[in-house]
Write a protein that binds this DNA or RNA. Structure first.
Lengths: 304, 304
DNA sequence: ACGCCTCGTGAAAGTAAGTTTCATCCGTGG
DNA sequence: CCACGGATGAAACTTACTTTCACGAGGCGT
């Protein structure tokens, strides 16, 4: 194998296009025509077959192969996938207009989707970052060892509360949720040492939830608050405070993102509790899954 | 009425992997083996020849081709290139242990939090990427102009359904949610042309929801399905299909992330509908906010 | 000027990759 | 039990890629 040029191949990851442009002058005329096409439109070239590209460069397939070897590839297919990868990497990052937070009046649906998703994803990530594992651990301990768990929440946070209740229930913990304040107060009054009360409120100012948590605390239960605002009133009646990190934007979008953040926290606690007694939780999950099985239709298979 | 719904899979550029995971359950066993290899290591698959991949999946080349077609590609070379592009675009995941989806037995809470948050955020982002604005637009139109909107969902999806109902209600749309199948069926029977029925089911196989949606459709209502699996049975009774993009991991984490993705879609529709008649929606939001104000305690004194 | 070498080049042969066809197998429902 | 339909892989087939080879253009020493 005497005649291979052996270019110093530092193009491991990126910079294939740059690498090719650098080699351009050292290539033969026919190869240069190929190279120029490739550099001009890497993504397009990746889509072409070797014959196509050869024709476009007014040369033969053989030359294209030679070009591949000249730039350090094994063959044409390898060049193609490298080009595709390279082209993909240069795609613009998400739209700047979208990151701001609020949705402009004239926005179309694509913008709305991008904005909401961005804010939602951010809220989830940032919530996770600022969550204190130590506090979570204590909460998980408390819930895992609790005789009974009450979860409170109103409005949008009510869904989260309800979701948490259902989750705990599914892994065999005794948990309750009450959509109604009076019932909730009654239940809180019956809590005692060793029980846990979880209050969820985005703003941390929902009097119903605070009131119930206060009651629970007075009865000796361990109280946990989940809110976006670490200094809000609800934190004053909580033994443990977990916070979400939805940025304040408008009322609406803030609340929407916060709900996702709340759910993420709930999921973390849930998995934490489940992990604490893995075997039992797994069993419970299987049993509950089996229970709803008859309400699923056969296979999702469908060919088209 | 044409039996084929509009599926919101605009996998033009991004989300190929997600798209494949969504299709996974609708594939034949042999194709699933191929799909799993591809999803597990897109970059690696892109490097392989079709024979290689077939062997690795313990199947024939023919099946690999069939798989390519099933996921909407022309053939194997196109798949390869797309995979290479996709893999290149993927940013390095923060922690290899974390991306897998499932949580290792010995994981501590910090790991659990990181894993869940990562998967949740991903599901939200990827869902947004593959949502087809055009289909959303039509759904928004339908809902915005509907005489009445019914939202159906069971289990975890029930929370999402309920949330959607509440949101629509808050901006003055007449919307209902029924936790009970019988009531839901009754309601569906009373729908007619110009009304909208929305069915939410992660798996797309929840017979209760499908049944109700079918009923609604028979009565002439416009039907919308929200599911993670674009070929699941629920899509057969829907005029419009919106998909979430939670990767299939384990039973639990898949479902958890999917719920967040569903909520994101719901939020997008909600904002879309609200934007459609901004003035009225804003007014309604203010009024409803005012209504709960007396249940908030004074100072929030948020972060310092 | 002449031969002789070298190099770039494309035609064509050759090989490997990808695609289609078809017979077989297997489970399902009549 | 058989008919049916879908899933599957073997093999035939097509296309894409790679190699070989011969030709022609230029350089260079004689």
């Amino acid at each position: 194998m005497a005649k291979s040029p052996k270019i110093s191949a530092s193009h491991e990851q990126g910079g294939l296009i740059v690498h090719i442009s650098g080699l351009l002058p050292s290539l033969s005329p026919a190869e240069q025509r190929v190279a120029r096409l490739v550099v001009a439109d890497p993504a397009g070239a990746a889509r072409r077959t070797i014959t196509d590209l050869a024709t476009a460069a007014e040369t033969s397939e053989a030359t294209v192969i030679r070009f591949c070897r000249s730039v350090g590839m094994d063959g044409y297919p390898q060049l193609r996938i490298r080009l595709a990868a390279e082209a993909a990497r240069r795609i613009e990052p998400p739209d700047a207009r979208v990151v701001g937070g609020d949705i402009p009046p004239g926005a179309d649906l694509a913008q709305i989707i991008a904005t909401i998703a961005f804010n939602d994803a951010r809220a989830v990530e940032e919530t996770a970052e600022q969550l204190d594992p130590a506090v979570c651990e204590q909460v998980v301990e408390a819930i895992g060892g609790a005789g009974r768990i009450d979860v409170y929440g109103a409005g949008a946070s009510g869904f989260v509360a309800s979701d948490f209740q259902q989750k705990l229930h599914r892994i065999g913990r005794t948990a309750f949720y009450f959509p109604d304040v009076h019932t909730a107060l009654t239940s809180a009054a019956l809590l005692g040492r060793g029980d846990v009360a979880v209050g969820i409120s985005h703003t941390g100012t929902t009097s119903d939830v605070i009131e119930v948590l206060e009651q629970a605390r007075a009865r000796g239960a361990t109280t946990v608050a989940l809110t976006n605002f670490p200094r809000s009133p609800i934190t004053e009646v909580a033994d443990f405070v977990l916070t979400t990190a939805a940025r304040e934007t408008t009322y609406r979008s803030g609340a929407m993102a916060s709900r996702l953040a709340q759910l993420t926290v709930v999921d973390c606690l849930f998995v934490g509790v489940a992990a604490r007694n893995r075997a039992k939780a797994k069993k419970a999950l299987e049993v509950t899954a089996e229970a709803v099985k008859s309400h699923r239709v056969g296979s999702t298979r469908r060919r088209g």
